[in-house]
């Protein structure tokens, strides 16, 4: 089974803040990490490989620095890695991104299974998985919480819904995106780290993947960011005073109308 895992290097979102005065991103000390959902996608891919054989290729579209994230993926059990990187990709939204990724995966010989994280924590769009599947002509499932079985070409999965879950069945080749509940990602092994050090990185440019330049980057992106600003907060800040008992009594009185 030839498995591809899409990974993205993202800023650690919990550290990202917008300075309300200058409207600039406070990026001091913000670390680049592998998108947390992608770690679960990778773990699931490596487990499937361990059980059913095959190879796991991690692929990322991003700047040259994303190589570090790909090497980390190798240390966690991936076999091969490819970085799709070109200035022409700048400004890509999910529409252009799925086009680029699909061209790259096709260039690398296609996949039996593609696994993505549910979403990336910087954009939170959750659109790359479904979009990529469509471009690959594959069926897909989002928010998978469990791989129930793989028998030949038939894969059974549990997909999370808002009110429970669906047990579903699809045939390979297909794509699914995962939620964190699906597994506990492993910590890189020593041998994995050594392999990651030596592993050859396949670099793919826009020309290498035979992409139509009009469909890349900003040019190929239907959406445009026109403004960024910090979220508004409600500002009430009414602290009750006194001992715990006094505060509780005040609150109980104030809540009488609601309860």
């Amino acid at each position: 089974m030839k498995i591809f895992v899409c990974v993205k290097q993202v800023p650690d979102a919990k550290d990202v803040r917008l300075d309300p005065k200058t409207n600039t991103l406070a990026r001091e000390g913000v670390q680049s990490i592998m998108n947390p959902y992608d770690r679960h996608a990778l773990e699931e891919a490596v487990r499937l490989k361990e059980q059913h054989g095959g190879t796991v290729t991690v692929i990322s579209m991003g700047p040259p620095q994303a190589e570090a994230t790909l090497r980390e993926a190798i240390s966690c059990g991936a076999d091969e890695m490819a970085l799709v990187s070109d200035r022409a990709f700048a400004g890509a939204d999910t529409w252009a991104t799925t086009y680029t990724l699909s061209m790259a995966i096709k260039k690398l010989g296609g996949a039996d299974l593609i696994i993505c994280g549910k979403q990336a924590i910087d954009g939170d769009t959750a659109q790359v998985g479904p979009g990529l599947a469509e471009r690959m002509g594959m069926p897909y499932l989002t928010c998978v919480r469990k791989v129930v079985s793989v028998a030949g070409q038939v894969i059974r999965l549990e997909r999370m819904m808002d009110d429970g879950y669906d047990l579903v069945e699809a045939e390979l080749p297909m794509l699914f995106t995962v939620v964190k509940e699906i597994n506990e990602p492993r910590i890189p092994s020593l041998k994995g780290k050594m392999k990651a050090k030596k592993q050859e990185l396949v670099m793919l440019s826009a020309a290498d993947i035979g992409a139509d330049p009009d469909l890349l980057g900003l040019k190929g992106s239907p959406t445009q960011v026109v403004n960024v600003f910090p979220p508004e907060m409600r500002g009430e800040r009414c602290l009750l005073e006194g001992t715990a008992d006094e505060q509780v009594a005040q609150l109980a009185t104030k809540l009488e109308a609601i309860l």
């Binding site: 890189p188 020593l190 780290k193 050594m194 050090k197």
Partner: peptide
């Protein structure tokens, strides 16, 4: 050495995360 740095890295991650 590079190898020793890796040992430290792996052990550190296990320590911090587990």
């Amino acid at each position: 050495s590079e190898e020793q740095e890796m040992i430290v890295d792996v052990a550190r991650q296990i320590t911090d995360e587990m």
